[in-house]
Design a protein around this nucleic acid. Structure first.
Lengths: 259, 259
DNA sequence: TAGATAACTAACTAATTAGTCCAATAATAA
DNA sequence: TTATTATTGGACTAATTAGTTAGTTATCTA
């Protein structure tokens, strides 16, 4: 006869974010009561806004703990809605995760596609492309964890989604134009593989940020500090432009494609 | 001695609430003992080998699914031992994870520290360092997932461990020597930050591999294929050497440290 | 060689977690 | 007005999971 009576509400996942945990039930009920009495605050129904609230909460949770570490109850608490409502709008945790992942790629596409580069000389254009690629990762840290999580799961979810391809199409177009322009003007070397270049441009900043915690410990340097972020950005530009403007000669050190 | 001998964990007839419960354990185990005696199958006991078996199984599981996705039962199954034996040797899942993480850093240290570079000219030495840095990630893919997992948890575990610092000490020594040598011989530019350089050298390969699933989809290119791995390695060397050998001049494009 | 100790097993427990059922209320659109 | 949809709440379940208990056997040492 040991019937479990657990009255304690689960606040795990919320405790560290901010101090507004105690908001939940009591406050909500009180507000509901007030609304009934005063009619001053009619509870608006807006399924789209609610879904956005849920998606934002889910993104925060998935980006914080990864797919397996994320808790549906924590998402519900973050969004300040009832659990049923979440399942009213989304089929499952996995469904919700996929929606967040698609959102992530949309963010990436939007931010990487909106770079005005027309009319710039090739070096300046490439500099801007490098800087903005890095800035996207700096300003949207959730993107990195979402991509890491998806790669941990070996691209299982994203392979079903058509969104992903559109991302590269726009970016590769920019890249191709700049490379061709630079090549024709004789400032860039020939035969650059745009895929390798894109991966390098991204990887130089991505690794710095995605591994910032272990690297900060290893080097005893606070990699997130603004001056270090700025230094990193300059370094990335330096490296990429050095690569592009280096024109290998016969008998040079340049490695063979396959050794 | 005519009691049924069931080797599989049977659910039949055991949970019944009548008097036949006491059938089970003693009898079964006694019979097992008899069988062992008769067939003279001595089960060898070797705690160190067992612990290594557990650690190897745990590494495989953690590297496959991350900390939160990993299941203790799966580790037990991989190691082909009983669950309690795991807890006999390790305090908890987290304890086991930390041990695996330390092992990961030991692997990294061993492999990155054992590169013979003495007597080489600076460019050749740096080329070898780049190649071997990349090769470590190629050949030890578990390392990448372990580092990603640890960064997802914001370096919580590794910050307690002293192993990590020793890793960089040896590597940074190699790096410093080569850079100084190259600078004196006039083949490398001056004022290179070894930390930035190390992060770049690693990041160029790390991102390529850690995000290989999403990138492979994005570019429709099988990044794990040997020819692509070789191409990537050449590209990394090319980029790093281009950076090192580029000597910026006055009024050059080189970006300011802080813009 | 006795018996202590450490290596080992099967079965169990307590807690957690994704997801559901049922019953209700309130806003909104037809 | 009526039907629909958004929303809450609470209790519930079925499965899973980290960790434990109670027991057995090999090995080492006094």
């Amino acid at each position: 006869m040991n019937v479990m009576v657990s009255v304690k509400p689960d606040t795990s996942g919320l405790t560290e974010t901010d101090g507004t945990i105690c908001w939940n039930r009591a406050t909500r009920l009180r507000e509901k009561g007030d609304a009934l009495q005063n009619k001053s605050k009619p509870v608006k129904r807006d399924s789209i806004r609610t879904q956005e609230k849920i998606l934002a909460a889910a993104q925060a949770e998935f980006a914080r703990r990864g797919y397996d570490g994320a808790r549906v109850d924590a998402i519900v608490a973050r969004a300040k809605i009832s659990k049923n409502l979440l399942y009213h709008h989304f089929r499952s945790k996995e469904d919700l995760y996929i929606r967040v992942l698609e959102r992530t790629y949309e963010t990436l596409r939007r931010r990487q596609g909106d770079i005005p580069l027309a009319g710039l000389d090739p070096i300046e254009a490439m500099r801007r492309l490098c800087e903005s690629t890095f800035q996207v990762f700096v300003e949207e840290p959730d993107v990195i964890v979402m991509l890491n999580t998806e790669n941990l799961h070996r691209g299982k979810h994203i392979s079903k989604s058509p969104i992903i391809r559109a991302l590269y199409d726009r970016l590769s177009e920019s890249l191709r134009i700049i490379l061709k322009d630079g090549e024709e003007k004789g400032v860039f070397r020939k035969g650059i593989d745009p895929v390798e270049l894109y991966i390098s441009m991204s990887g130089l900043g991505y690794f710095y940020l995605s591994n910032q915690h272990t690297l900060s410990l290893l080097f005893n340097r606070r990699l997130r500090d603004p001056e270090n972020i700025a230094r990193r950005q300059a370094h990335i530009v330096d490296m990429v432009i050095s690569y592009l403007t280096r024109i290998p000669e016969e008998g040079d050190w340049t490695p063979d494609l396959v050794r």
